[in-house]
Amino acid sequence: MRVPERFRLIHIVASPAALDKAEYLRIAPDEALAFAAPESIDDPYAIVEPDDGYAGLWLDAQEAEKFLARACEWELPPHRPAFAQGAVAGLPAKLWIERDRMLILVPAPYAADLEERLA
């Protein structure tokens, strides 16, 4: 298993209606993470900031399925791509699930714990 690394994400706080218009890692109704800064966002009061606070790694579909089978006790969303968040291996994890791979992110201080629990 590989080592989780720091991820640079874009942290967006904006109105729910503005966030509904694009595909984000939607962590709350008025809060999202994105892989790249959006070209525009339909909210004059939106906050868009780079966020280096997460660590994580991509797992292929098979690895992901195996890991989640033992480490996640709640149901994943059926559609792809999908965002989900909750306790995974006892850590506050954020998952971005694509058809053939999955990104698992945790707050950076938990990087070592994630590595240990993936092993």
Binding site: E73, E75, G86, A87
Partner: peptide
């Protein structure tokens, strides 16, 4: 309402 059904230990 945002994340779905989760065990109480997450709260």
């Amino acid at each position: 309402p945002h994340c779905g059904r989760r065990p109480v230990e997450e709260f």
